[in-house]
Simulated assay, not measured.
Amino acid sequence: MKLKEEKFNYISETERLIIRPLKIDDYENWLNEFKNRHPSQNRYDKGKINMTECTLEWFHSLVDKHQELALTDTAHVFGVFRKEIGTHLGMVDFSTLARDGFQWGRIGYAIHNQYWKKGYGKEAVKEALNIAFKHLKFHRVEAHINIDNTPSIHLAESVGMEFECMRKGFIYENSEWTDHLVYYKNSK
Rank of each mutant, 00 (worst) to 15 (best):
A156Q: 08
V92C: 03
S175K: 15
Q67M: 00
M51Y: 10
H135W: 08
R167N: 14
E57F: 04
K168G: 11
I153K: 07
G119N: 09
G105W: 03
L56N: 04
Y115R: 01
Y10S: 11
F59V: 05
E84C: 03
W104E: 09
E123V: 00
H60Y: 08
D25M: 10
Y44N: 09
E57G: 04
S12C: 12
T14V: 10
H112C: 10
F81L: 05
W104I: 09
V80L: 06
L17I: 09
F94M: 04
D73N: 15
F102V: 02
L181H: 13
V63P: 00
K65E: 13
A124N: 06
I107N: 04
F78G: 11
E15T: 14
M51Q: 14
M1D: 13
I171W: 05
L3F: 07
I147G: 04
E127M: 05
W104F: 13
F78D: 01
L62V: 13
Y27D: 07
T72R: 13
V141G: 03
R37M: 12
I111L: 00
F133L: 01
Y10R: 11
I153N: 02
W177T: 07
D148W: 15
S40Y: 03
N50A: 14
R43D: 12
G105P: 02
L56Y: 07
K188Y: 09
G169L: 14
W104Y: 13
V92F: 12
E84T: 10
N29L: 01
E164Q: 13
C165T: 15
G121E: 03
V63R: 00
E68V: 00
F8I: 04
V182K: 08
G160E: 14
I147E: 12
M166K: 12
H180S: 11
E127V: 04
E33M: 00
V77H: 13
S175I: 14
T96P: 03
E142A: 12
A75P: 00
M1S: 07
M1N: 09
E84Y: 10
V80E: 07
H76A: 11
H38G: 10
L155M: 12
E142S: 12
M51G: 08
H66G: 06
L56S: 04
A124R: 01
H139N: 08
D93I: 05
G101V: 01
K126C: 01
L71I: 10
K117Y: 06
E84L: 08
E162H: 06
N174R: 12
D45R: 04
K185C: 07
P151I: 07
I171H: 06
S95F: 14
W116N: 02
T74C: 07
I145Q: 05
Y120F: 04
N149L: 11
M166L: 15
V63E: 03
G160F: 08
I19S: 05
D26Q: 00
K188Q: 15
V182R: 14
F59Q: 01
K83H: 06
G79P: 00
T14Y: 10
